[in-house]
Amino acid sequence: MMEFLNFYVVPGIVTGSIYALGAIGITLIFGILRFGHFAHGDLATSGAYLALGATALLGLTPWAALPVAMLLTALLAYGIHRLFYRHLESRPKILTVIASLGIGMMLRSVVQVVWGVDPLAYGSGIARAQAFGPLMLRPREIATLALTLALVATLLAFLRYSKWGKAMRAMSDNPDLARLCGVDNDGVTRLTWFIVGALAAASGFCLGINTELTTMMGWSAMLSMFAAAVLGGVGRVEGAVVGGLVIGLAEELSVLVVPSPYKSATAFVILLAILLLRPQGIFKGKVL
């Protein structure tokens, strides 16, 4: 039982919260800007490597580098929007989807040129797991969960109580009516990219600190993040969190029934199942 908890459930929840941070971004873009953002995994990768860059250049500890990376990735996300996505706004959304696939490749190749393709790590500190009753948790795992919790709570409060948070929800709910109310489309778009970029960086960073940094890590995680967003219900932040946790747990538990190389196919199977059975997801999101 304890083994089950420590070998499957804990890693599942940690992976799940990493997916959740990425899935929130995907679900916000899907809900507000109305397209599937296929550069999202690579945006997370960029964030992770920017944090690495900040540790090297500024001599920061990894966790101190995280806010820097989040800020830079937020700017990067907005910059990509301004340079590449914005002029496609008046055209069929699927063109932006195609563009984002290319942006993903471009981001990945920049990381590969700058940092090379060999796996890297933030530090070599060996973190021993501490016992909490029957649970064994490593400090970085605790930090990942705490960070996810803090970011999600902040975001939910922002969306619920702040004027611009409400504007984002209004835009996701009924864009025409939001415009009639005088909501500035560009303002909401800018805000969305900032939030989404920062969360993607956090997700990539947590992925890197819990495993290692590879240039493909974001791309590989993206399928799981999309599955989490669809599972939770497109446009639903709380859904993305639940979806992320479910996918993370399912992947870790899948090794009990299928050979471990197929772990990363779990998300795909869940995605197909949810599209087949309940396309609006757990929390009744949008179906585009």
Partner: peptide, 9 residues
């Protein structure tokens, strides 16, 4: 669904 879903699938 819209083609975004097909893309991810």
């Amino acid at each position: 669904f819209r083609s975004d879903y097909l893309a991810i699938a």
